[in-house]
Structures are given as structure tokens and as C-alpha cells.
Simulated assay, not measured.
Amino acid sequence: MSTSRRALLAALRSQPQPATLVALGAATGLHVNTVREHLAALVDAGLAVRGSGVPDGRGRPAATYAATGAEHALVRSEYTGLAAALASTIRRTSSTPDRDAAVAGAEWGRDLVSSSPPAPEHYADPRKHVVTLLAQLGFAPQPGGQPSTTLLTRCPLLTTAQAYPDVVCAVHLGIVQGVLDADRADDVSAELFPFSDPGACRLELSRGDGAHG
């Protein structure tokens, strides 16, 4: 899947309700015709569905699109068992499972950056790059009320995270740190608070002295 198509899918997942072509173009910075082509491919792949908006005056209502969650189901069915086995092995064989998991996650985060370089707007604030990549991984990030706060409203490995929170959550925080390291964002600190909010984990990305913003 191309970078632009993956970004469009991430934008679809972040929408609280079905979105129009124009709205998705504004969210991704892609031309409407490009959005239309990518949406057709996502619909064909079963990753998105097309609907109709509310009629507004004359003419047909605008088409709307929403993510189906099919890819998340595929990830769960194919990789949850493997993730659980790896988490169990790390906890059983490592004297510092959380540290080793964080190291593995950081390597993963750096690999994500090398395979998907940040867009120009992410250089000004690498926190946006972190949130974009987390959306692509299926965490469904949402604003948390403060500029430094992001709520992760979906966990791609929820069952495994509940069974091995010290390992899986350390991997997830490691991913964030790996992205920040790759972006050379030395002034940004990351903290993850698992299951801290109703239906979400809270990610704090603070600049400088740790003040919000």
C-alpha cells in the first residue's frame, strides 16, 4: 500500500463519522481526484465502505466513506497469537522484560520512519509524525484536551496487552521513542499511561521542560 493511500486510510479511521471526498482531501492534503482513486481501491479491498450523506437541497447527496476495520481484524487474526508468544517469551527469559520490550519497540519505530519519511509539516512538530504513524498502525489516536495529550482509543493487540501489559505497552512506548529518535526530536519526552482513560490509553508528548504544549 502506498504512503498516500495509507495516510488516507488513517484519516478515514480518525473520522468520528463518514466523511466526504472534500473533507478527506482537506485532511490529507491530497487532490480530490487522487482521493477518489485511492478510495475506490480501499473499497475494492474491503477496507472502506461508501455511503450517502444527508440530502441538502437539490441534487444527489455527496458520497461519504468510512473505514471498515477489516485490516484490524486481519492483523488480530494473523498476529495476535505470535505477539502473545513473543511477549510471554520476553517476560519468561528476560530479567528486564519492560526494558527489552522498549528496545525492540524503538527499533521498530526507527524502521517505520526509514520506510515512511515524515511529511514537511512534521519537521516543525515531530509529535504530529508520531500521531500519524500510530494512526497507520491502528491505534486510532484522538486529541486529548491538551496539545501534548493524545488518546489512543484502539489497541491492535488489546488481548495480548491485557495479558502482558508490561511487555506490550513498553513496546508501544518504544515505538514512539524510536520515531522521536529518528526525527532527532531530543526536546520531546514521551510517557504512556496504559488504560488510564475510559476506553483509551493516554500518550503525553511534551516539549522542553515537560510543560504541556
Rank of each mutant, 00 (worst) to 15 (best):
H212F: 05
D111Q: 11
G29Q: 06
V32K: 06
S189V: 15
L205R: 07
A7W: 09
T93A: 15
S88D: 13
A23T: 04
P16D: 15
T150Q: 10
Y79L: 12
R110L: 05
V179D: 02
A62V: 11
D187A: 15
T149G: 01
Q142G: 02
Q177F: 06
V32Y: 11
T153C: 12
T160L: 01
I175E: 09
A67R: 08
L47S: 04
L8T: 05
L39P: 06
V188F: 15
P147E: 12
L133T: 11
A19F: 08
S196T: 10
S115E: 14
S14N: 08
A163S: 13
R36Q: 13
S206F: 01
S115W: 08
P61E: 15
T153K: 11
D125W: 09
A101N: 04
G81M: 02
L134V: 04
L157H: 00
L12I: 10
C155R: 05
A163R: 03
A170M: 03
R58Q: 09
P97I: 00
G53I: 08
A102P: 03
G105P: 04
T34W: 06
L158H: 13
L180H: 05
E37C: 09
Y79A: 01
G51L: 04
G144I: 07
L86N: 06
L203F: 10
P165V: 00
G138T: 01
L180N: 10
E204Q: 11
T64E: 11
R6T: 07
L173I: 02
A106W: 00
A104P: 00
G57D: 04
T159H: 12
V35G: 07
P198F: 13
V35A: 09
V167Y: 01
A7R: 13
T132R: 08
C201N: 02
H172R: 03
L21K: 07
V167E: 00
D125R: 05
G59M: 10
Q17L: 15
R110K: 13
T20F: 07
L24Q: 05
F195V: 08
D56N: 09
V179A: 04
P61C: 12
F139L: 03
